[in-house]
Design a protein around this nucleic acid. Structure first.
Length: 266
DNA sequence: AATGGGACCTGCGCGC
DNA sequence: TGCGCGCAGGTCCCAT
């Protein structure tokens, strides 16, 4: 699932491949993924427009265009951006001035494309919490102080902190040895400090390795990320904990699958 | 504020 | 083998 490291990986690849290229045509195979404006206007306003820069905010990609508008891309679960694409099984394909395509694939159709005047006015952006790299440990501790929500659920809340998804939340809690069910305000200063450090360490390590290809995520090149070999608990229900040889359990928290080692995480 | 549920979606893996 | 079902998770939305 694309989280901050996966989206950042894509951002960096787009910087190298499609920035400064012009969109000459837009082919819409499934208009469902276009949230605004309507398909016809979407196509018309993207033609003959240059892609000037790529911005990432949390898990959202924002393409700055020469028209002054912005194309936002949220991959949700199964979205992919592929370059060069084949414009065959995509949902929307953008033909560039060099004749190549950048494809937006999305098997589950949960992804979102928007062509808008000002991305900073998006509700999603206005409500977005800070990224872990934008705050210090004191601020993180302050944010947790009065929250009774389970720590795992809070880490997934993009309004609280942005960029962390299910996989990295679970991994950070494991390496911090914190039980995901603990109320956020029950964590000691020492624990919150460790957790904060581990979140940042794991996100950075995952960026370094091009993200985790556990579901549909692939890089813009179509190649898989390489973080899977660092995964300690995610998806390992019933398997042996690498640390204590105990059994990894899977429970549901906030409707999300949550993997942890009951022996190591207290 | 916390919590739990459904909705959106489709492909996959499971049990029978 | 084939089929139906539940589940996967990011986000929004609603009810309590």
């Amino acid at each position: 699932m694309p989280e901050l490291p996966e989206v950042e990986t894509i951002k960096r690849e787009l910087d190298k491949t499609i920035v400064d290229k012009k969109i000459v045509d837009v082919i819409v195979y499934n208009p469902k993924v276009i949230k605004e404006p309507k398909k016809e206007k979407f196509i018309k306003e993207l033609k003959n427009v240059k892609i000037e820069k790529i911005i990432r905010k949390g898990k959202l990609l924002i393409l700055g265009l020469s028209s002054g508008k912005f194309l936002t891309v949220h991959l949700r679960m199964t979205g992919q951006l592929i370059y060069p694409g084949d414009a065959k099984k995509s949902r929307v394909s953008f033909k560039l001035s060099n004749g190549k395509f950048i494809d937006f694939n999305d098997s589950r159709l949960l992804g979102e494309l928007r062509l808008i005047d000002d991305w900073q006015n998006l509700k999603f952006i206005k409500e977005l919490g800070p990224e872990p790299f934008e705050i210090n440990v004191k601020q993180f501790q302050e944010m947790l102080k009065n929250r009774k929500t389970k720590i795992k659920v809070l880490l997934l809340d993009q309004k609280f902190i942005s960029g962390v998804g299910n996989l990295y939340a679970v991994e950070a809690l494991f390496s911090s040895r914190i039980d995901p069910r603990r109320p956020a305000n029950s964590l000691s200063n020492k624990e919150t400090e460790l957790l904060f450090k581990e979140i940042k360490r794991i996100l950075l390590l995952a960026i370094k390795h091009g993200g985790s290809s556990v579901d549909d995520y692939v890089k813009v090149s179509g190649k898989k990320g390489d973080y899977m070999r660092f995964i300690k608990v995610y998806g390992r229900k019933g398997e042996k904990c690498y640390k204590c040889k105990g059994k990894i359990e899977r429970i549901s928290l906030g409707g999300r699958g949550t993997y942890f080692c009951p022996n190591c995480q207290k």
